[in-house]
Computed example of a mutant assay.
Amino acid sequence: MSKKYPSLSPTLIERYLTHLREAERSSHTISKYAHDLTTFLNYLNGKPLTKANLIEWKSTLVASFMPTTVNSMLVAVNGYLSFMGWQNLKVNLLKIQKSIFTDESRELSHDEYIRLVNAAKIQENERLALVIQTICATGIRVSELRFITVEAVHLGRAEISNKGKRRIVFLPNGLRKLLTVYLHKQDKTSGAVFTTRTGRPLDRSNIWRDMKALCQSAGVDPKKVFPHNLRHLFARTFYSVDHDLSRLADILGHSNIATTRIYTAECGSVHAQQIEKLGLIIT
């Protein structure tokens, strides 16, 4: 009699994804897990789900992807294994030494942010210019843009509900004025401020695509241009004014302050300048 191994199939993947939905995990997380589990299923290609095959798959990932990407894929598979009660099959994540500096080649600067907004204005894409400013001036996630409603603009604050948590985000007066003018032009009296032609709230792919289209005219490296980098810029700018990490974590909706530290990490050149100012070299 052949040995029966734990298994992975489209049906079992869907069962796990249903569990994630019921746990109110974000749609982005669910989509990511679905992709990673399907990738692993395709790799198995009929082979049994064993610890040896998991370790072998991990090795192929290491050869093809960055460590952070590898770990994110392993987290998805480990989550499935835990859900199925197969903890003994889980594989260890790669150990990554955290850098105390950000990669300047990937972080959006304030000047580049301004150039992106101006490029959108020059292209007469008022909606995109305001989307960029709204995300950057509030620090919200791109998935939370739908909570910026006509009512929120009138009140000066939006109530954000994400990952089972609620928080209040205040809208700067300058942003409210710009959005009020925009709403008047659009003849919008209720609902989400930023919508498609069919009236649906803009999603991540709409915004990501439109932002990438600005890169050449704005003179900004495309690898720096994506919605989440606007959130990073907000965090760094806020922290430079108010060095209260705990408060910033609340504003961003972070459960773990360690995540907030990543957002506020300075670039290596800034650190080097600070070291030079210490005056500890005697000549």
Rank of each mutant, 00 (worst) to 15 (best):
residue 167 R to T: 05
residue 174 G to V: 09
residue 174 G to I: 14
residue 206 N to V: 02
residue 194 F to D: 04
residue 192 A to I: 04
residue 175 L to K: 00
residue 165 K to A: 10
residue 179 L to N: 01
residue 196 T to N: 12
residue 193 V to D: 00
residue 187 D to W: 14
residue 202 L to A: 00
residue 166 R to A: 08
residue 173 N to C: 06
residue 171 L to N: 11
residue 163 K to M: 11
residue 175 L to S: 06
residue 166 R to P: 09
residue 162 N to P: 07
residue 173 N to F: 06
residue 188 K to L: 11
residue 206 N to S: 11
residue 189 T to G: 14
residue 179 L to T: 00
residue 170 F to C: 08
residue 198 T to D: 09
residue 183 L to C: 03
residue 202 L to G: 05
residue 179 L to I: 10
residue 182 Y to G: 00
residue 187 D to A: 13
residue 175 L to R: 05
residue 205 S to Q: 10
residue 178 L to A: 11
residue 176 R to C: 13
residue 162 N to T: 07
residue 200 R to P: 10
residue 199 G to K: 04
residue 194 F to G: 02
residue 162 N to Q: 13
residue 187 D to Y: 11
residue 172 P to N: 03
residue 172 P to G: 03
residue 183 L to A: 05
residue 166 R to D: 09
residue 162 N to L: 11
residue 198 T to S: 15
residue 164 G to D: 07
residue 167 R to Y: 07
residue 193 V to N: 02
residue 162 N to D: 12
residue 202 L to S: 00
residue 189 T to Y: 13
residue 185 K to F: 14
residue 177 K to C: 06
residue 199 G to V: 08
residue 195 T to M: 08
residue 170 F to Y: 12
residue 186 Q to A: 02
residue 183 L to H: 07
residue 171 L to C: 11
residue 168 I to Q: 04
residue 197 R to T: 09
residue 206 N to C: 08
residue 179 L to C: 01
residue 181 V to Q: 14
residue 201 P to K: 00
residue 199 G to T: 01
residue 181 V to I: 09
residue 175 L to V: 11
residue 186 Q to Y: 06
residue 176 R to I: 08
residue 189 T to V: 13
residue 204 R to C: 05
residue 169 V to N: 03
residue 172 P to D: 01
residue 201 P to D: 02
residue 166 R to S: 13
residue 196 T to W: 07
residue 186 Q to C: 09
residue 200 R to E: 14
residue 197 R to N: 13
residue 172 P to C: 03
residue 177 K to E: 10
residue 186 Q to F: 04
residue 176 R to H: 12
residue 198 T to H: 13
residue 187 D to N: 12
residue 191 G to I: 10
residue 201 P to Q: 06
residue 185 K to C: 06
residue 163 K to T: 04
residue 191 G to W: 07
residue 183 L to Q: 02
residue 165 K to H: 15
residue 193 V to R: 00
residue 186 Q to R: 13
residue 176 R to Q: 13
residue 187 D to M: 09
residue 191 G to T: 04
residue 190 S to R: 11
residue 176 R to D: 09
residue 184 H to R: 15
residue 163 K to N: 08
residue 175 L to C: 11
residue 180 T to A: 11
residue 194 F to V: 06
residue 190 S to I: 04
residue 194 F to H: 00
residue 200 R to D: 09
residue 193 V to I: 04
residue 189 T to C: 12
residue 193 V to F: 09
residue 181 V to D: 05
residue 186 Q to E: 03
residue 187 D to R: 08
residue 198 T to V: 09
residue 205 S to M: 10
residue 186 Q to M: 13
residue 200 R to Y: 12
residue 205 S to K: 14
residue 168 I to G: 04
residue 164 G to T: 03
residue 193 V to L: 03
residue 202 L to C: 02
residue 178 L to W: 01
residue 199 G to H: 06
residue 190 S to L: 12
residue 206 N to T: 07
residue 179 L to H: 01
residue 172 P to S: 01
residue 192 A to C: 12
residue 168 I to N: 03
residue 165 K to S: 10
residue 205 S to I: 07
residue 191 G to C: 07
residue 170 F to G: 00
